[in-house]
Simulated assay, not measured.
Amino acid sequence: MTDLDLGGGYTLRPIPVAEYRAACARLEGQIFGGNWLYDFGPPTRVPVPLGETFSWGLFHADELIGWQFSHQTDERTVSMADTGVLPGHQGRGLYTRMLPHVLDTFRAAGYTLVTSHHRATNNRVIIPKLRAGFLVQGLNLYEGGLNVALTLSLDSAYRDAMHVRSGFQQAHGEAARRLGVSPLPRPDAPPPPGLALPDDAGPGTDLGSGYALHAVPDATYRHIYAQLEAAVYDTVSFDWPHPAPLPPLAAPQYTWLVGHAGQVVGWHASRQADTRTAYMANTALLPAHRGQGLYTRLLPVVLAFLRDQGYDLVRSRHHATNSAVLIPKLRAGFRLQGLEVGEHGVMAVLMLSFDDPYREYMDVRSGLTRPTGEVAQRLGLDGGS
C-alpha cells in the first residue's frame, strides 16, 4: 500500500510495526490518558505471536499524529486492534476518511471478516464503523471497561446470515443454504391499504417535505397498526401459540401517526417504563417513505416531548444488525447498553439520558472516561486523581 492523501494536509502512510510501537509509547498518554483502565501490573506471560500485521501512520505534513494497527487473528479474520489520533486533530473526519482505505487493504489480502472492539459509549468511532457496514456483535467487560464488539463481513452471504441471526430478516438464498435451512413459503403480502389520517389526529408537528407527526389516542394507534403491520415489517419474530395471558401494564402511553398528503405513512409509540424512564416501543414507516431522513427528523420531536413529561432516561431496543436505526439513535446521544434475546430476536438496548452527570456516568462505566466531579461524588469516589 502506498501513501494515501486523506485531504486537508493529512496522509495515511504504511510504517513498520516497530515505528508504530514507538509512536504508541510516545503518544498514547496524550490520546488515551482520559480513559479509565484497570492496572494489572507487569504481564506474567510472553505475548501471543501475531499473524500478519498491518500498521499505518497518520501524518499531518511530516508530523506523525496518529496510527492504525491491525493484525490477523485466524485464517479468515483480521482485527482492527488499535487506532489513535492526537486530540488536536480529532473531530475532523479523519477516521471516516481513513476507514475505506484500510478495509480495501484487508479485502485485497483475502480476509473474510474484520473485527474491532471499542468502548461501548464511544459513539464517535462506533457510528463511522456502522456506516461502513460493521454490525454489532456483543458486549464484554474487560480491564478497560465495557467494550462493544463489531464485525464487518466482506462476504455478502455471511452478512445476510448475521441479519438472520438477529431476526432482522428471514433466511434466503445463499445465506439459507449455508445455514442449512429453508424458509416456509409465505403468501405475497398485499399492497398496504391507503389509510387517511383519522379524525382524532392532532394538528401535527411539521417534519419537513410534507410530513407531520400527529398525536392520536392509543386505541387509534393500535387500530392503524393492526391494518399496516404486515406492510411494514420483514423481521422474523417468535410465533407464540396463544394470546398473551395478562393485560397490558397500566402505564402512560404516548402515540403518534406520521402523515403525508392526508395519508398515514407511519407511526411512533412510547410509554412509561418506570418512575424515571420512558420506553420508545415502536417506530415504523411504510417502505415508500424510508431513506429520506424521516426517522432522524422525527426523533428530536419525540425526545423533546418525553423530556417535557419529566423523564430522566429514554430506553429503546432494536435488532442488533439494524444499523439504519442504530446510527440516528447514537447520533442523537443514545448509548449502547447491552444485547438481549427476546421474541423479536437479538436486540441492542440503547439508553439516552437527559441528565448530564448520568450521561457522563455511562462513559465512566464503559471506561471511556475516569470518574471526576459530580459523577465521582455520586459514586462515592475521590475523582481528583
Rank of each mutant, 00 (worst) to 15 (best):
S156L: 06
A157V: 07
Y158I: 08
A161R: 00
A161T: 04
M162C: 14
M162T: 13
H163M: 05
H163R: 11
H163T: 02
V164A: 07
R165W: 06
R165H: 12
S166T: 05
S166Y: 01
S166W: 01
Q169H: 10
Q169G: 05
Q170C: 00
A171Y: 03
G173N: 09
R177Y: 04
R177S: 07
R177N: 05
L179Q: 15
G180E: 04
V181H: 13
V181N: 14
V181K: 15
S182Q: 15
S182C: 08
S182T: 15
P183Y: 12
L184H: 12
L184Y: 08
L184E: 15
P185C: 10
R186D: 14
R186H: 12
P187H: 12
P187Q: 15
D188N: 12
D188T: 15
A189D: 14
P190G: 09
P190E: 11
P191C: 13
P192E: 14
P192W: 11
P193S: 09
P193I: 08
P193N: 10
G194K: 13
L195G: 11
A196K: 12
L197C: 06
L197A: 05
D200H: 00
A201E: 04
P203H: 08
P203K: 06
P203I: 02
G204H: 06
G204N: 05
L207M: 04
L207A: 08
L207C: 06
G210V: 02
G210M: 03
A212F: 00
A212I: 00
A212H: 09
A212T: 07
L213Y: 00
L213F: 02
A215N: 07
A215Y: 01
P217D: 05
A219W: 00
A219R: 09
Y221A: 06
Y221D: 08
I224F: 05
I224Y: 04
I224R: 03
Y225H: 14
A226C: 08
A226S: 12
Q227P: 07
L228N: 09
A230C: 12
A231W: 09
A231H: 14
D234M: 11
T235D: 15
T235M: 12
T235L: 07
T235R: 13
V236R: 15
F238D: 14
F238C: 07
D239K: 03
D239S: 09
D239C: 08
D239H: 04
W240L: 10
P241R: 11
P241F: 08
P241C: 10
H242W: 06
P243Q: 12
A244E: 13
A244I: 09
A244D: 12
P245F: 00
P245Q: 02
L246F: 01
P247M: 02
P247A: 05
P247L: 02
P248H: 01
P248V: 01
